[in-house]
Simulated scan of single mutants.
Amino acid sequence: MAGLGQHITAMVRSHASGDDASFYSVALQVAAREAKAGHHVLANDIKTAVDASRERDSVGKITTLAQPRGELAELVEATHPAVQLRELVAPTELVAQIKQVLAEQRQRKNLLEHGFAPAHRLLLEGPPGTGKTMTAAVLATELAVPMFTVRLDSLLSKFMGETASKLRLVFDSVAQRRAVYLFDEFDALGADRSGNDVGEARRILNSFLVFLEEASTESLVLAATNHRSILDKALFRRFDAVLTYTLPDARQATAVIRARLGTLASGTSMAKLGDYTTGLSHAELVKAAETAAKTVLMRGDTKVQRDDLIAALTSRRTASLG
C-alpha cells in the first residue's frame, strides 16, 4: 500500500500544479501496478480514462503543461506557437513530408496498437532562415502541444562534464510531457567527432545516440542543422525522416513577401523580381518586406510600390551576400 500511497500523493501534487502530463504519467504507473497484481479490468479502465482525457485535452486547444521547473528549466524554453501549416511557404515535396508526419501523429494510437511507431524523430537540414524552426512551430500548433527548445548552449558549456545526465533529463521529459522538442543548431552537438573518440564531446554524442534510439513515441524530437555535411554519419539512421530545406525560388519568394505585407501589397506588381530575391532566405525576404512596409508607412502611404520592394531587396542582398 505504501507504493500506492506515493502514487496518489504524486497525482495530487501534479493536479494541483496543473501538470496534466505528469498526472497522466503517474496514473499509467498505477495502471501498470494493478495489471501486475492481476487486476486487469481496473488497469484497463484507468488506461481508457487517461486516453479519453488526453483526447479531450488535444482537441481545439494547446495541451496545458506547467512551465519546466528545476533542472529542466535551465535546459529548455517552453513556448506555445500559433503557426499553421498554410503559413509555411515551402516546396510541395517538403509540405507533403510534414503532412505525413502530422497524419501519423494524429493516428498514432491506431499505429501503436498495430505495432507501428509514428514518425517522431526528425532531422531538419538546410541553410539558415529557410523554415526549420517554423516547421517545429507548425507541428506544435497543428498537434496542439507545446514546443520545447533545448538550450544546447547551456548543455555544452554551462553543464560541460555532466551533459549526458542533463540530456537524460530532457529525454525523460520527452516520455512524460507530450510536446515538440527542438534541438536547434544541432551541429554543435552532432558534429562528427571521429578524431576524438575518448573525449567528452564523443561521450556526449554517444549518449545522445542512445537516448534518440530509445526516444519515447509520446513526443516529437526534432534536430535542426545548417550543416548536414559535418554531422556524424551514425546520426542519420536514428531519425525516422530527414527534411531538407532550400532557399526559395522566385514564386515562393513572392509568396513570402505578399504574406508578410498583407494589404500593403494589394495591387503591387511583383513580376520578375527573381533577380532581386535570388540567394535570399525566407527570413531575409521577411526582413526586406518589413523594411519596405515601414518605409511606406512612415512617409504616409498605404501601399508598397514595386520600387520600394526592389530597394529593400537590393539592400538586403548587399548585406547578406556581401
Score class of each variant (00 low, 15 high):
residue 1 M to H: 05
residue 1 M to P: 07
residue 3 G to R: 08
residue 3 G to P: 06
residue 4 L to R: 15
residue 13 R to Q: 13
residue 20 D to R: 13
residue 23 F to N: 00
residue 27 A to E: 06
residue 31 A to V: 06
residue 34 E to P: 04
residue 41 V to A: 13
residue 42 L to D: 05
residue 50 V to F: 10
residue 53 S to Y: 09
residue 55 E to L: 15
residue 55 E to T: 13
residue 67 Q to N: 02
residue 68 P to W: 00
residue 75 L to T: 09
residue 79 T to Y: 05
residue 89 V to M: 00
residue 89 V to D: 00
residue 91 P to R: 10
residue 96 A to L: 12
residue 98 I to W: 01
residue 101 V to T: 11
residue 105 Q to S: 09
residue 105 Q to R: 14
residue 116 F to A: 11
residue 122 L to H: 09
residue 123 L to D: 13
residue 139 L to S: 07
residue 140 A to Q: 12
residue 161 G to V: 11
residue 162 E to F: 12
residue 166 K to Y: 02
residue 167 L to F: 09
residue 171 F to L: 08
residue 177 R to V: 01
residue 177 R to N: 03
residue 179 A to Q: 06
residue 182 L to N: 01
residue 188 A to P: 00
residue 189 L to Q: 03
residue 191 A to P: 00
residue 195 G to M: 07
residue 196 N to L: 04
residue 202 R to Q: 10
residue 207 S to D: 04
residue 213 E to W: 08
residue 216 S to N: 05
residue 219 S to Y: 01
residue 221 V to N: 07
residue 226 N to H: 14
residue 234 A to V: 12
residue 234 A to Q: 08
residue 238 R to N: 08
residue 238 R to A: 14
residue 242 V to N: 07
residue 243 L to H: 15
residue 244 T to W: 06
residue 248 P to R: 06
residue 251 R to P: 01
residue 252 Q to W: 05
residue 261 L to A: 09
residue 269 S to F: 08
residue 273 L to I: 10
residue 276 Y to M: 07
residue 281 S to H: 12
residue 283 A to P: 07
residue 290 E to D: 14
residue 299 R to Q: 11
residue 302 T to H: 07
residue 305 Q to F: 08
residue 312 A to F: 08
residue 316 R to G: 04
